[in-house]
Design a protein around this nucleic acid. Structure first.
Lengths: 239, 239
DNA sequence: TTCTGTACGTCAACCCCGTTGACGTAGCCT
DNA sequence: AGGCTACGTCAACGGGGTTGACGTACAGAA
């Protein structure tokens, strides 16, 4: 079959559905995010999306090639929301840190969507803009291109990896989440000091620490290491 | 319906299938892992599993409550395989690095299962053993308890986060995976230098670097930062 | 203003999936 | 030898993504 999809900017005819809704790619993405947020990740099916939109399910295929295509659009939208209102300060470390925390926070706001979207490369507007910004921060800071690219890669994947992991915890059904917490308090806190001395010695610290996200600390470690490498390469260049 | 599943140790009757195969939970798990490994992530469906076993698909439900139940069994089996043969050297940094790479590698070998397993806290033998080992490495190295716990948390979540992220990429349907690669080569490589100068300047480095996992580099950064903090706290303690 | 081409919403159908109730046979225990 | 039942099989259900065909109502041309 020929391509059903017409690029958004070229659309001219806006024909309402039987139920009077005027569709658009934007409306479909927003509805998808809302659907996932309200009824969980499993709720995102083309048929349900159609029902939520007030349109025939197959109408979605006039705007997206497949559900995967739609997912990419959702992912890109989340990146875009993370960048809303962000301004660089010129301090590379502060800027990078702020951007990482923003990305993480944006995904935490939509855990179910994050689970599906965090690991995709979209190649769309919001993503490329973010990539350009991060690379700009690193190169302006003085990282050589090779190092800047490696750092960019580590920074982005670490942010998304933690985002997905933390999102998964948030997206768990209440019962399962309680069970997870229970594991730390019941199982780990009661391990025998003879067989598990290190866990026993740190049990209290562990149970409190595991309740929070490890991302901010991990991010600081990454920035620490990056700063050390930047200083080293500066010394080398000077000497 | 009453429970179809009878716990493995209580099984007595072993009735061969039409095709002469004698089923067992173990055989089903092994076949599932083989199926994933040989034919990709999509290959693991109950119907295909039945075909691969030489049995009716529904026979699987005599051994597992659901596909999720089966996948947990698969995940458990993988953890068991992954921990085989590891020995600490006494060099904390080398040990931590080796363990991280091992965890990552074992998940990459079975991406589909990794996706489901990476974010669950099981509290079972293999998991507690690993936690104990990592904490032991850090505390023996000289990290104070509070720092050791934070580092443990960051280390584990970084490993699992990258593992899940990289596994997700491998677990993608072939078409989606190809699309992801395409994005870097087609989309990013052709961005205008005027609007995206930093991407344009590093396009070649980017496309080659994004093909690999960012984990080893990110892990080294984390270890760098940890080592620096350890040295700082030693100096402080001495002075 | 009328005409015309076609964009796009709709419908129906296809094949895949996981899962389950019913059934009968073959294997174990007495 | 006989009976009980575990368990492999079958058929069916509901739901999924996707697509070919169709017609209508909209946009742009005259």
């Amino acid at each position: 079959m020929a391509d059903r999809v017409i690029p958004e900017p070229q659309r001219r005819r806006r024909r309402p559905t039987k139920q009077g809704v005027v569709l658009s790619a934007e409306l479909i993405v927003d509805t998808a995010i809302r659907l996932i947020g309200q009824h969980g990740a499993d709720a995102l099916t083309v048929r349900r999306l159609g029902a939520a939109l007030g349109a025939d399910p197959s109408a979605v295929y006039r705007y997206f090639h497949s559900t995967d295509d739609l997912l990419l659009a959702v992912a890109d939208e989340l990146i875009g929301r993370a960048r809303q209102g962000w301004q660089p300060t010129g301090d590379w470390r502060a800027d990078l840190r702020a951007m990482g925390l923003r990305i993480h926070a944006s995904y935490q706001a939509h855990p179910q969507a994050a689970l599906l979207a965090a690991h995709r490369t979209t190649g769309r507007v919001h993503e490329t803009t973010a990539v350009e910004a991060i690379l700009g921060i690193l190169r302006t800071a003085g990282f050589p291109d090779r190092e800047a690219v490696r750092l960019y890669h580590a920074f982005v994947d670490q942010s998304l990896g933690f985002a997905a992991l933390d999102a998964a915890a948030l997206a768990l059904p209440a019962a399962a989440a309680a069970a997870d917490l229970q594991v730390w308090q019941a199982s780990y806190a009661r391990l025998d000091a003879a067989t598990h001395p290190n866990i026993a010695a740190t049990a209290e610290l562990l149970t409190t620490d595991m309740r929070r996200s490890g991302y901010p600390y991990a991010l600081d470690l990454l920035l620490d290491a990056a700063e050390a490498r930047l200083r080293a390469s500066a010394v080398e260049a000077a000497g």
